[in-house]
Simulated scan of single mutants.
Amino acid sequence: MSPRKKVSSGSAQAQPTPDPKDTKDVLKNVTPKSSLARIPSPARFFLVVFGSLVLSSVLFTFTAGFTQGDLGLVSKHLEEWWEVAGLIAWRGVEVALAWLLGFDGECTFFKWGNYLSQALGEENKLTWRLRFRSGWDVASFLFLTHLPTYTLLSFFYNVRPTSVMASYAITILSTVIPFALLRRPASVHDLSHAPSGAVANRAILQDRPTTIYTTLAATSIFSVILYASYATWLPAKLVVHFEGIPDISAVHAGPAGLPVLFLTLIPAGLAARDFLFVSSTGHSEGTSKEADQSINRQGEYLVMALYRKTWGQLSTKTRILTSRTILLATGVLVNTTVQVAGTIRSVSVEGAFTWGAVWAVATVAVGATFGWIEAVDGV
């Protein structure tokens, strides 16, 4: 038997004790390394974009016999190669943005503020990290950005609900599946397994009445803005810019149509709550400190001063909510314009933009409502 070697106390390196208040340290110690971490980030980015496009093409090909009879009647016939390439490219851009902006992982979009913080001379930069159950965040985003298009097909073009739901599901699943495979899940949407300190306002996020109230608030805003548009200026726009639109009875349903509109928009309210309210309310500040106001600001650039006195004055939760609201409203407007004008027959760009603008305004109103809720003490 070989003699045991004595290990001196000086030779052993003491392991640093993780700070239980620091979200970064907590997540690092509770998240085990997996084979996913060995795949370089650029490779995962390529696999997500390429995999989403391939999966979408395969699924639409398999379901063409089921949906083509409905969608083919209203779809625009694309004669030029660049029209097809443009729609495919936009789909790729949509998936790429979801990855680069940090959906279901580290929020790169919000980390841009760190670089400005460094330029401003702040000693303690904010580490804006949010973690979500893998795939849930991007599913909510895609559900909302594609909702105006499929609502138009269902209510005004008499496309069968089964065809609409099949196409809708393919659009979402073809992106969610690659995200779920190539980006690790974490805390905000998985509170039962989230480590202590990783999620703020855990009691609020787990409270069922709060979940119901915030979901119904978002649903009501979507419903009221759409109903007000139906009752005033939108019918004329539909007739002028949607040539040959088969049915606009939905806009003339009057008060009797409001309950149906509200019920159909409950999933939109739930998705908006998860994408906007949960992501900002559940953000944990960690050990970040406020910037030292005594730092010498002499000679700083004007843009840095403007940033510090405007955006820099907001709390981290408000920045997250504002950024996500702007991002979602822009995504709804741009995606609706591209999809409706590019795929539905006899629809002008102006008409598609107008239809998307209604939903974008509703999205901004929902974000503002959540901001008002989060301004309450204790949230």
Rank of each mutant, 00 (worst) to 15 (best):
V26T: 13
S348G: 15
G69D: 12
G356N: 05
W82L: 04
Q293V: 12
G257F: 11
S154K: 09
Q118W: 01
G10K: 15
T127W: 06
K28V: 07
A89Q: 05
A268V: 12
M1R: 10
R160G: 08
G113Q: 01
V58T: 08
A119I: 03
F353V: 07
L97D: 04
L263V: 13
Y301F: 11
V224C: 01
D247S: 05
S346T: 05
H283N: 08
I170Y: 12
T363G: 04
L314C: 08
G105N: 14
K289A: 00
F50W: 11
W311T: 06
A180P: 07
A203C: 00
E290C: 00
V340R: 03
E106H: 11
F46Y: 12
L276M: 14
N201T: 04
S8I: 03
L216I: 02
F50T: 02
S52K: 02
L258K: 04
L302R: 02
S34H: 03
E285Y: 00
R133Q: 12
T108A: 00
E243K: 15
A305E: 12
F66L: 15
L234R: 06
T264I: 14
A194L: 08
K309F: 14
L142P: 06
L321N: 06
V251R: 02
L78V: 09
F155T: 05
S11Y: 10
V251I: 13
Y301N: 09
T210P: 01
Q313N: 14
W112P: 00
I248N: 08
D25C: 03
A250E: 14
D207T: 01
A139G: 14
K289H: 00
E122K: 07
D137E: 14
V364A: 01
